[in-house]
């Protein structure tokens, strides 16, 4: 049995639906909420499960998740060992074999004002890990020019594929591509989304010269990598707070190249983040990549240089065909 298969963590009912409908290839999310219809996100569309155990776009007599369904899935996710994932549960998610991320919500138990655990889990979001090799092919020539890697900031709203793009950039910069010989990459994967580590081992291909710090705070992780692993490039996902920015500045001063992502829709959006604004104004980032969704995830990529002049606009070929 393939341990990476998402079916292994599903209840018998859901497993049958996925097998019947053959949706495994483009499956994105499965959302379970107690007494609410089960939702499946497949090929960028939302589906409900009808009483006939088939997928429907309309919510009519849809199959609802029960408390027992949630408990069952939770037991499979934790391999019958909830105690082993208490730290993950405290963070609100569990990463399972295959790099799939399971988000949890429910009754939060606090201790001294901090989250101790989530008891009575009532909502589960199963996010299927998607590794799209080659998704960075078109942007890499702008990130690496003449053998030199530019400090790059990937900006996009949620669900536009910035993590997928960053993962492929990391892989190709690490392995090398075309005439570029790979370099050592340090990856701080705070939320286990890039490498999808399961027990410290990356489940996604992040390249042969990549050292990963999994579930580590970005600011601290970045400093640890510089001290211990001497990376030429450091990659980070979803930077935001002051510590992250300070660490990035330290890494740039230490001679490392930075490739990172941030939530936002425009340069103005990210300029509203005070510390990040400083780095932008000092032109520390040499490339900005904006992702947008038109028809598919991240099908438009706009690339700007340090002076905020557009260098290129890449449009997914599938979109051109559709229009």
């Amino acid at each position: 049995m393939n341990g990476n298969r998402i079916e292994n963590i599903l209840s018998e009912k859901l497993k049958r639906v996925l097998e019947n409908e053959n949706v495994q290839t483009e499956l994105q999310e499965i959302r379970l909420r107690v007494d609410k219809p089960i939702m499946i996100y497949w090929a960028n569309k939302e589906f409900f499960i009808g009483t006939d155990l088939k997928l429907h776009t309309l919510d009519q007599n849809s199959l609802c998740a029960t408390n027992d369904d949630i408990k069952e899935v939770l037991e499979y996710i934790s391999k019958h060992s909830l105690y082993a994932y208490e730290e993950d549960i405290r963070n609100g998610y569990i990463t399972i074999e295959g790099g799939h991320r399971i988000g949890l919500a429910g009754k939060v138990v606090l201790e001294n004002g901090k989250v101790k655990t989530i008891r009575n889990v009532s909502c589960i979001n199963i996010r299927v890990s998607h590794e799209i090799k080659g998704s960075a092919d078109h942007v890499l020539p702008y990130i690496v020019t003449g053998g030199v890697i530019h400090h790059t900031l990937i900006i996009s709203p949620p669900k536009c594929g910035k993590t997928t793009l960053l993962r492929d950039i990391v892989r190709q910069v690490s392995d090398g591509f075309m005439n570029f010989h790979g370099v050592n990459v340090g990856l701080v994967d705070e939320r286990s989304e890039i490498g999808g580590c399961y027990r410290g081992i990356p489940q996604n291909d992040i390249g042969k010269r990549t050292d990963i710090l999994d579930s580590c705070n970005k600011g601290e992780g970045l400093l640890m990598l510089i001290r211990a692993m001497a990376p030429q490039v450091i990659a980070l996902d979803e930077i935001g707070n002051k510590d992250d920015i300070d660490a990035i500045e330290y890494a740039i001063n230490a001679g490392c190249k930075i490739i990172c992502t941030v939530h936002g829709n425009s340069i103005k959006d990210i300029k509203d983040k005070p510390r990040l604004q400083e780095l932008i104004e000092r032109k520390l980032f040499q490339r900005y990549i904006f992702l947008e969704n038109q028809n598919n995830i991240g099908d438009i990529k706009k690339i700007y240089d340090e002076d905020h002049k557009m260098v290129s606009m890449l449009v997914d070929k599938r979109m051109l065909k559709e229009s």
Binding site: S78, K79, H80, S81, Y83, A84, E86
Partner: peptide, 12 residues
Amino acid sequence: EINYSLTPLPEA
């Protein structure tokens, strides 16, 4: 195994 290593049951 549970107390010190948090080993999941199948492995434990």
